[in-house]
């Protein structure tokens, strides 16, 4: 259908006008949605990770039910897909991909980064994951098993990475500052910095 080939900017303007006229999405509603979405960022996930590193009860809750753990920290999760949390250990490291589209734990990490949505990342993650994370300079010891989690359906997955050595006694805020989005998808590993 030729209408669908209209330049995207024009299409968005027309769809926005129609949705407003039909009472489905008013401009202020869209602005509010953008504002709320902008509030989600990897800082939220990093706070959860740092708390899990320092509070065993919270860690257990987070692994059992990521959605409840996020809600307990005031992160809005209502109506969103369940959040699953993958626990890295000395023996197992996790990497998350969505080969079918770009499912991402947006409530706790914000918008997915460009690379997560790329064809190269999605193709390589399930086929040569060690080669893939080497692009970030991440090299796992041979003793560590890699598990790639392909997010194909109803869950959104984040990684709970290992706490860096030498951070004993650090505050939750100091620890959270060590964790970025790549660490919670598994392409990188947090370090003491």
């Amino acid at each position: 259908m030729s209408l669908l080939e209209t330049p995207s900017g024009k299409l968005l303007d027309a769809i926005s006008a129609l949705l407003a006229a039909k009472g489905i999405a008013a401009p202020d509603e869209i602005a509010e949605r953008i504002r709320i979405t902008d509030q989600a960022s990897p800082a939220r996930g990093a706070q959860m990770v740092a708390r899990a590193w320092t509070e065993p009860e919270f860690r257990a809750q987070m692994l059992a039910n990521g959605t409840l753990a996020a809600e307990s920290m005031g992160i809005p999760m209502r109506g969103l897909p369940p959040l699953g949390v993958l626990e890295d250990t000395a023996e197992v490291h996790h990497v998350v991909v969505c080969t079918l589209c770009s499912c991402y734990p947006r409530a706790v990490l914000g918008y997915p980064p460009f690379w997560f949505k790329s064809a190269a990342y999605r193709s390589r993650a399930v086929r040569d994951p060690r080669g893939l994370i080497a692009e970030w300079g991440t090299v796992l010891p041979d003793s560590v098993k890699l598990r790639v989690v392909d997010s194909t359906a109803d869950y959104r997955w984040m990684v709970l990475p290992l706490r860096p050595e030498g951070t004993e006694g650090w505050s939750v805020e100091q620890l959270a500052a060590l964790v970025d989005e790549g660490d919670m998808i598994g392409v990188t590993i947090p370090t003491r910095g």
């Binding site: 086929r127 040569d128 994951p129 080669g131 098993k145 598990r147 989690v149 392909d150 194909t152 359906a153």
Partner: peptide, 16 residues
């Protein structure tokens, strides 16, 4: 079925 990929590593996938 690909030549890449190391023994011991695994994929975990949601399937109905």
């Amino acid at each position: 079925h690909w030549p890449e990929g190391r023994a011991g590593d695994a994929l975990v996938v949601e399937i109905f």
